[in-house]
């Protein structure tokens, strides 16, 4: 017994080091392997509050570009409103019940990272505003990411510039779909993988979100085709997509609250249980 105590006292620093190393490595590996089991995220009182303060200063510096974007979006919405042909085609209207299948929460980016392999965005609205994990986040130009974790007042978003993110997307003109991933290299481009080779793709074609996921409504802009090449292993097309969004400069965003989502998830869970 005496010897055990002596051993512990003699090696106390080493044991302490190994204990803390074990804890931190576990946290690291956990954050890399599982989708949402992060113990430590910036959706909390401390870092959310600090980022909100910092953002208040930064907002003034970006007022001009933010205004320009709003004017552009207003112009686009006006053109939709005045153009009768377009309004009848709006896919969001659910004609049977007369309700839109999606609601929108307006929020603000208070922290944005884009220099790492797994990037996250912190938003200034959380569970109190109705934000839940797995909601889609977009802005006027295109998609931003998917909500990962929420606290009462803040939430974190897996950016599309995150190597773990996978979003269903398709070609606007032919409906051939693939999954949107990021290779960790450039902040302006993402990759659309697993596109069948039957698809006729040309440079400049628009890529939009596909209807297969319950997170995003169908037809939200993502980007344009930059280059197309064939993957040697799978012989599917890989399309390099130039994003409409400048992911390094984000202001106000919209969180999409899909009304069909809970119904779909319930249905899928029921099937799994049976």
């Amino acid at each position: 017994m005496q010897q055990i105590f002596n051993f512990i006292i003699r090696n106390s620093n080493r044991l302490l080091f190994l204990l803390l190393l074990g804890i931190s490595l576990t946290l690291t590996i956990q954050s890399h392997s599982y989708h949402r089991s992060k113990v430590i995220s910036s959706a909390n009182f401390l870092s959310g509050g600090v980022y909100e303060r910092i953002n208040r200063v930064n907002e003034y510096l970006n007022l001009k570009t933010e205004n320009d974007e709003l004017v552009l979006e207003n112009a686009r919405l006006k053109s939709l409103l005045f153009n009768k042909e377009d309004t009848t085609k709006l896919p969001l209207m659910d004609s049977l019940k007369g309700v839109k299948p999606a609601d929108i929460i307006v929020s603000k980016v208070i922290h944005n990272s884009y220099s790492r392999y797994e990037n996250f965005i912190t938003l200034s609205s959380g569970a109190n505003d109705g934000v839940k994990p797995d909601m889609g986040v977009i802005n006027s130009l295109g998609i931003i990411g998917i909500v990962d974790d929420t606290s009462p007042r803040y939430s974190t978003v897996v950016s599309i510039l995150n190597m773990k993110s996978q979003i269903n997307a398709k070609l606007k003109k032919t409906n051939h779909f693939g999954s949107l991933t990021w290779d960790g290299k450039s902040t302006g481009y993402v990759q659309l993988r697993d596109v069948p080779r039957l698809a006729s793709v040309r440079k400049g074609d628009t890529i939009v979100t596909g209807g297969q996921s319950v997170i995003f409504p169908e037809g939200i802009n993502i980007g344009t085709v930059e280059t197309v090449y064939t993957e040697t292993k799978t012989s599917f097309y890989v399309i390099k997509v130039k994003l409409f969004n400048d992911m390094t400069n984000l202001g106000h965003v919209y969180i999409i609250k899909s009304k069909d989502r809970e119904e779909l998830i319930n249905l899928e869970n029921k099937e799994k249980n049976e």
Binding site: F17, Q30, R116
Partner: peptide, 19 residues
């Protein structure tokens, strides 16, 4: 890590450097 959303990478690196 709390501020960077990065799991435990900063904690690991710091503990190793301190030791």
């Amino acid at each position: 890590d709390l501020f960077c959303n990065s799991g435990g990478i900063h904690a690991t690196a710091c503990v190793i450097l301190a030791y």
